[in-house]
């Protein structure tokens, strides 16, 4: 499987650099929790319709960085973000940005599957409902159906759309969360270790799904698994102790890391 992905990655690298359109740009991003500087001077381009993996040991700031893209850090008391992130030319860290609108554009999938304690249908329909994306019940059902189909959950749940979302297995719950996120047609999907609570089969299913949906979305994924990063991502950024140490095409990072710390991490010497 790794071989296949590597082959695919080679193809992407082989294509000319210019056609790789940039979706979001982080410039000099830093995050403070109170007095603690959790993240320093991060500059990173997120490319459209690609998967960007953020890797690094625990506490390195990768999740913190991820949560800057939909301003989820706003919900943490005492958390301060500096620098700038442009999403399609819009500055999203500015104080006057409406985070509700931003989060409709930038969806998120969390580490632990967190479906609402409502029916499967209502879980997926929640986003379209609050954002007023469907003008009729039929349209809403259409959105729910297509979101569930796109995540491959449709065949498993079509007969019990009104069963609680929490009654599904862990892997199904996480796919339900992905379906819920894509139901509002976001431009970017953030994934914070989406497979860390899942077994290897469910993980493989999610990884396939990520690879499928990247045709339509831009994905940023935080992962602890370097194999996963190698399998699903086109670009990788390695964080260590709050610094972005190295970034580049996934293949380069894993085959020829420039920085010694990256080398140590991917070979398992630090972590």
């Amino acid at each position: 499987m790794t071989g296949q992905t590597a082959a695919a990655a080679t193809e992407v690298v082989a294509s000319p650099e210019e056609i790789r359109e940039v979706k979001a740009t982080a410039r000099e991003v830093g995050v403070f929790y109170g007095e603690t500087n959790a993240l320093r001077n991060v500059n990173l381009d997120i490319r459209k319709n690609e998967v960007t993996a953020l890797i690094g040991p625990s506490g390195c700031g990768k999740s913190t960085f991820l949560r800057c893209f939909n301003r989820m850090n706003d919900t943490i008391d005492g958390c301060r973000v500096v620098g700038g992130i442009m999403l399609d030319g819009d500055e999203i860290l500015a104080p006057n940005v409406d985070v509700v609108h931003l989060r409709a554009r930038v969806g998120m999938v969390f580490q632990k599957p967190n479906p609402f304690p409502k029916s499967i249908f209502d879980n997926v329909a929640y986003g379209p409902r609050i954002h007023g994306l469907a003008s009729s019940r039929a349209e809403l059902e259409e959105i729910v159906d297509s979101s569930l189909k796109r995540t491959g959950l449709w065949d498993e749940v079509k007969d019990r759309l009104h069963a609680p979302g929490t009654s599904l297995s862990g892997g199904q719950q996480q796919r339900l969360c992905i379906a819920r996120a894509i139901a509002v047609q976001p431009e970017v999907i953030l994934m914070d270790e989406p497979c860390s609570a899942l077994d290897p089969i469910a993980t493989a299913r999610i990884e396939e799904l990520i690879d499928e949906i990247r045709q339509h979305y831009t994905i940023v994924i935080v992962t602890h698994s370097m194999q996963q990063a190698a399998r699903v991502s086109q670009q990788t950024a390695f964080f260590h102790l709050g610094d972005l140490v190295e970034k580049g095409d996934t293949e380069h990072i894993f085959t020829a890391p420039r920085d010694e710390r990256t080398q140590s991490y991917i070979t398992g010497r630090i972590g």
Partner: peptide, 19 residues
């Protein structure tokens, strides 16, 4: 996690609270 899920979906704080 329920609050994060709702906020992450773009629910406003009052929607998160009351829904």
């Amino acid at each position: 996690s329920i609050r994060e899920a709702a906020l992450g979906m773009g629910a406003s704080r009052i929607q998160t609270t009351f829904h």
